[in-house]
Simulated scan of single mutants.
Amino acid sequence: MEDLLDAIERVIDRRRDLPTEFPVLLGEADVMTYDELQRDLGRLIHDEAWATHTIPKTAAKAGVWAETVLDEDAFIRPWMVDISDDHYELDLTAARTHLGWSSRHSLRQSLPDIVAGLKADPFAWYRANKLNAARVADDKAEVAASETHAIPPEQHRAMLSDHARSMQGMHFSMLWVHWLTMGLGLWLATAPFVFGVFDQTEFSSAVQSVTEDRGLWPAAFRNTLTGWNDVICGGLIMVFAAFSMSPRNGWAQWANAVIGVWLLGAGILFWAPSAAVYSNDMLVGALVVALTLLIPMMPGMSMEGMMDETDTPPGWTYCPSTYLQRIPIIALGVVGWC
């Protein structure tokens, strides 16, 4: 920066003597290559020599792309690979001739001081260069984050009030999900009568065979259990959906979500003899969970958590919601589906 300011001052001082158009290149006469830079960094930071291996640019781009997808804080980008082997020799003749300028600083000379500052206080160095300081000092990063986000009490109370009004408006704009959940509860409570669950006395040979092989309760009894389970769960879903109409009853949404999860496994637990009842329970359970938690947003989320724009929580070295964390779950879901 000092060299740049010096060049600008010289241009201003000599503006009457310079040509009308004066293109000029500014830079170091002794430019470090990427290979030299990497080797010097390895020696200065880790006191060891770093080996450099040459790979095709296509492979390098693929690796950089994968890192970008899996790590939102990645620095290297695919376009950097294209210029990784570029080496620019600047023609500084115009700067020397017309301005009498040459750089007084060089990266080669300054690099040891830069690395020394990094090693002396990694946390301060990362913060000064707008990097994720949690990678080197998570405890200091957490304290610094709390200090950075500290706000006056009056402003905090005003923010809480605005947040409460915003959340209330959002809640009332999403009341349709609770009405729809109530409708699902009504359907679930009446479905056993629609399917004739309580009146069924004859079952297929496959159901009878499984009952005998597994030593299960009689199919008619299991059918009755499944039917009453649907009636009771349907009634509870309607009650909790009604309570969920009020923004103060976030617990009711969680209660319905629990019932939805229960419905997903109830058919398996009771060895439901009816495929229609089993499928209906699975569908209603999944929809109830989606309508109570996923679509209207989970109840009970704090204002600080919702207003925080950072991806990495204080004290963490990575974002817990990146694809790196989600891919194993997605893979397990695909395996389970197959």
Results as ranks from 00 to 15, higher is better:
R10W: 10
R16P: 05
R16Y: 05
L18Q: 02
L25N: 04
L25I: 00
L25S: 05
T33Q: 03
Y34S: 06
D40C: 00
D40K: 09
G42Q: 05
R43W: 05
H53F: 01
K61I: 00
A62F: 02
G63P: 05
V64E: 00
V69F: 01
A74Q: 15
F75M: 11
I76Y: 14
W79T: 08
W79V: 07
V81G: 07
V81L: 01
D85N: 07
D85W: 02
H87E: 06
H87K: 09
H87V: 11
E89V: 10
R96V: 08
H105N: 12
D113R: 15
D113T: 13
V115R: 03
A124W: 02
R127Q: 14
K130Y: 04
N132D: 12
K140N: 09
K140W: 08
K140Q: 10
V143C: 01
E147Y: 08
T148E: 15
P152L: 02
A158M: 07
M159P: 08
M159T: 09
D162E: 15
S166G: 08
F172D: 00
F172H: 00
F172E: 04
M174V: 04
M174N: 10
W176I: 13
W179L: 13
L184P: 15
G185T: 01
L188G: 11
L188Y: 11
L188N: 12
T190E: 03
A191D: 12
A191P: 10
D199H: 14
T201R: 15
S204P: 13
A206Q: 11
S209M: 09
V210E: 09
E212I: 07
E212F: 07
A220N: 10
F221T: 12
N229E: 12
N229M: 03
D230T: 01
D230S: 13
V231H: 14
L236T: 08
L236N: 11
M238Y: 03
M245T: 10
N249P: 12
G250W: 11
A252F: 10
Q253T: 04
W254D: 01
A255P: 14
G260T: 04
V261R: 01
L263H: 09
L263W: 03
A266T: 15
F270M: 05
W271F: 06
A276H: 13
S279A: 13
N280R: 04
G285F: 04
A286M: 05
L287H: 15
V288P: 08
L294C: 07
I295T: 07
P299L: 02
G300I: 03
M306W: 10
D311F: 10
Y318P: 11
P320D: 02
T322E: 11
Q325I: 10
Q325G: 06
I330E: 05
V335G: 01
G336P: 05
